[in-house]
Simulated scan of single mutants.
Amino acid sequence: MNTQDTIISFAKKTISEEAQAISNLESLIDNEFSEAVQNIHNSQGRVIITGIGKSAIIASKIVATMNSTGTPAVFMHAADAIHGDLGNILKDDIVICISKSGNTPEIKVLVPLIQNFGNKLIAITSNKQSFLGEHADYVLHAYVEKEACPNNLAPTTSTTAQLVMGDALAVCLLNLKGFSSKDFAKYHPGGTLGKKLYLRVSDITAGNEKPQVSHDANVNSIIVEMTEKRLGATAVTDNGKIIGIITDGDLRRMLTNNSSFEGLTASQIMSPSPKCINDDAMAIDALEQLEEFGISHLLSEKDGTYRGIVHIHDLMREGIL
């Protein structure tokens, strides 16, 4: 077997072994898991998540997931906890401790201290019979038979299992809270994801020019309007109401089909009944319409009145596309 085949074989084996371990977790979700979720949901405090080594990295990621889905969470490194960071734990907080073995020295020191504080302790561990497993109020059994590492040493499958168990917790809490896409947008206002959730058509049209001509406008005035407003199109309006659209393509077809454009008006060139969208609609909805109809422009309206143009380049610029 050559090097390339060996690499591909190892990669597929790793994915297969981890996928099987994750699949096995499903059978370990029990009433204890449900009770742990309900305790977090009913708590007036936060979730403190701790771990050591690679488990600490997983703990940090679960904290990020919970915070972004409406469950206040704080990361506390197990080693730092016994050197002052225990002050992070408040009266009503629930502590989640992550450890594959459940028997590391730091965990054995930390667990009794948490118990002395009187906080509920949830364990995510592969070993229910460990020190952590036996002293926790609830055990989420993230059991794995072996690591994907050929030496069965490097945390690979075990940390994946911990992460999935954390995701399961977060998703259950999300559902109990009735956490919606609007709530999600509050915690993700930046970047492409946030824009997909909160950016509206009006946010785009407000920054664009608003090209429009009357139904009896001549070709010269149409070209001037489209050139000055630089959106590659203009609305044709009558008392503020949209009656058509003229695009660069419409102008090219007009020049191809007519030896002279003298006397032509907007009503003779325009495409009637153009695709429109409400100015209050989400920008992502505008993208869906543009893609569905294979067009580059949408006219925006509100209460039957023309408000502006959304060009597909606007959505590209905003990172929606």
Rank of each mutant, 00 (worst) to 15 (best):
T3E: 15
K195C: 01
L290G: 08
F75I: 06
E288T: 15
K186H: 09
V164C: 09
L264Y: 06
D216Y: 10
Q20K: 13
F10V: 13
E228R: 13
E18T: 14
L90A: 09
N220W: 07
E17I: 09
K54M: 06
T125R: 08
Q4C: 10
G244Y: 02
E26P: 00
V171Q: 01
G190S: 01
Q38A: 09
N103W: 07
R307V: 10
L121D: 00
G87P: 00
T3N: 15
V236F: 05
I242K: 06
P272Q: 12
P211T: 01
H83E: 06
A170M: 13
K195N: 04
K241Y: 12
T69R: 01
E209K: 14
N152V: 06
A281G: 09
H313S: 11
T160R: 10
P72C: 02
A235E: 07
N127A: 12
L90W: 00
L28S: 13
I242R: 05
G304I: 13
E228K: 15
V37D: 04
H77R: 11
S27R: 14
E318L: 11
G240N: 10
Y306F: 15
V109W: 06
P211F: 00
A217S: 10
C172S: 14
G190K: 01
K128H: 11
D248V: 11
V310I: 07
M226K: 01
T50E: 01
L199P: 06
S34I: 13
K12Y: 08
D5C: 12
T265C: 11
R317F: 07
L290E: 08
L251Q: 09
I40L: 07
S68G: 04
A142W: 02
I94G: 02
K128Y: 02
P112F: 05
T192C: 09
L298S: 09
L25H: 12
I269R: 04
M316W: 10
Q212S: 15
G244K: 08
G51W: 00
T104D: 04
K146T: 12
G207M: 08
V213K: 06
G51A: 09
L153Y: 13
H83M: 03
Q268H: 08
D167T: 08
L174Y: 10
